[in-house]
């Protein structure tokens, strides 16, 4: 049986119905056709599917779409505004923190949520925030630099 759900997706209202066994990841990628969010494992281990639910980063593969009823959902597609990259997105470009790019949307969502809840996170907090996002290409150093550059101390500190 389909369940009616209502939520906001990147700030816009969405209403419709979903089957209970549909994961939030499938919902985002297939129903909403927002394919920026990726699947790397489907079991909560890789973080490629990270989206924000009411501001909290979650692994969309481990959430049912029906559970998002009434929530504010944010995906990577909502991060650039009017064609302009967010500060964090710009930092990823500037620090070459992107290689194959498959992990990138998830990493950015995890890090963006951190910067919103703790505008001046310590290095440790940055690592904690993105450690659930596996990246096989970058070795993480450039990712951590990019996030750090968006914090007050990172801005003054410059490159390592």
């Amino acid at each position: 049986m389909e369940h009616p759900i209502k939520l906001t997706v990147n700030g816009q209202a969405w209403e419709g119905s979903v089957l209970p066994d549909l994961t939030l990841l499938r919902f985002v990628r297939e129903t909403l056709a927002l394919t920026g969010t990726k699947e790397g494992c489907g079991i909560g281990e890789c973080g490629a599917c990270t989206v924000l639910l009411d501001g909290r980063p979650v692994n969309a593969c481990m959430v049912l779409a029906v559970e998002a009823d009434g929530c504010a959902l944010r995906t990577i597609e909502g991060e650039a505004k009017a064609g302009k990259l967010s500060r964090l997105q710009q930092a990823f470009v500037a620090h070459h923190a992107v290689q194959c790019g498959f992990c990138t949307p998830g990493v950015i969502m995890s890090a963006q949520a951190l910067l919103e809840r703790a505008p001046a996170p310590s290095d440790e907090a940055i690592v904690e925030a993105v450690a659930g996002n596996l990246c096989r290409c970058t070795g993480y150093a450039s990712i951590l630099k990019a996030v750090r550059s968006c914090t007050p101390h990172g801005r003054t500190g410059g490159e390592r």
């Binding site: 990577i76 990259l85 470009v93 070459h96 992107v98 990138t104 949307p105």
Partner: peptide, 11 residues
Amino acid sequence: LRQDAPDKVTG
């Protein structure tokens, strides 16, 4: 800069 980066950071 990498040319592919904007596509990849925006999804």
